[in-house]
Nucleic acid binder design. Structure first.
Length: 203
DNA sequence: CTCACGATTGGA
DNA sequence: CCAATCGTGAGC
C-alpha cells in the first residue's frame, strides 16, 4: 500500500490515533530485509494532556514531538524498553500517537520461535514491538518515510472493508499505565485481535 | 548536581 | 505482588 504522508498526520493526535489502527508500520534494515506489522493498538497524547511527555515544556528528550508531523519519537522507558510514537499535528504543536501493538506478518529470525508461548503476541505491547523490530533511540527524530528505515503505509482495502462490515471493530477506551490523565478515552484497538496488549475492562 | 521515577514486562 | 534497570528532568 502507499506510504502515509506527513500532511495526513497534520491533525490532532486524537484524530490520527484511531485512523492509524489498521495501517501498517514498516521496518527496513540496511541489508534490505523488511518486516511489516499491522497496527492494532494506539494511544493519543496532546499538548494539554498531563500524561504527555511534552505537557510541561520542551526538553532534550521530548524535542521531536515539537517538530513537524511524520516525525518518529522514540524513548527509553523503565531503563529497558523503548516506545515508538508518530508525531502528529502542526509543526510546533507537541502531539504524538503511541503505537502500542502490532500484528507481525512474519517473525524476524532473531526471535526464538521455540521460546514464544504465543508467537502471534511477540509485538503485543509498546516495549515488545520495539524489541521485535529492533527499534531504539537511534531512530529517534527520523522522518517516517520510505527512504528511511521506518515508515507507515495506508490501510489495505481488506481492512477498510472488514471495518465497514463490522467484521472488525475499532474499540475506544482509556489509556494504560498512566498516573495522570487516566480518564481520557484516548486508546483505540482492533477487535477481535490476538495481538492487542490488553482488552478493555468489562463491566 | 542529585535522585526519584516512568506511556513496561515477565515472573513469583 | 514485585524486581529489573537507567536516562531524564524537577527541584534543591
Amino acid at each position: 500500500m502507499p506510504a502515509i504522508a506527513a500532511d495526513w498526520l497534520s491533525r490532532p493526535a486524537t484524530a490520527v490515533a484511531p485512523d492509524l489502527v489498521g495501517c501498517v508500520l514498516v521496518r527496513r534494515f540496511a541489508d534490505g530485509l523488511t518486516y511489516r506489522g499491522l497496527i492494532v493498538e494506539t494511544e493519543a497524547y496532546t499538548p494539554d494532556d498531563p500524561a504527555c511527555h511534552a505537557y510541561r515544556r520542551r526538553t532534550e528528550r521530548n524535542g521531536v514531538m515539537f517538530g513537524p508531523p511524520g516525525g518518529c519519537y522514540v524513548y527509553l522507558i523503565y531503563g529497558m524498553y523503548h516506545c515508538i510514537n508518530v508525531v502528529t499535528d502542526l509543526d510546533g504543536v507537541p502531539s504524538a500517537v503511541l503505537i502500542r501493538a502490532l500484528q507481525l506478518e512474519a517473525l524476524p529470525p532473531w526471535i526464538e520461535l521455540k521460546q514464544q508461548k504465543q508467537p502471534q503476541r511477540v509485538a503485543a505491547g509498546p516495549g515488545k514491538l520495539c524489541r521485535a523490530l529492533k527499534i531504539d533511540r537511534s531512530l529517534n527524530g527520523i522522518q517516517l518515510e520510505p527512504s528511511q528505515p521506518l515508515w507507515l503505509e495506508q490501510r489495505s482495502l481488506a481492512i477498510t472493508t472488514a471495518l465497514e462490515a463490522n467484521k472488525l471493530n475499532l474499540i475506544q477506551t482509556t489509556r494504560i499505565g498512566l498516573t495522570q490523565g487516566t480518564e481520557r478515552p484516548w486508546r483505540w484497538y482492533l477487535d477481535p485481535c490476538r495481538a492487542v496488549s490488553k482488552k478493555a475492562k468489562t463491566r
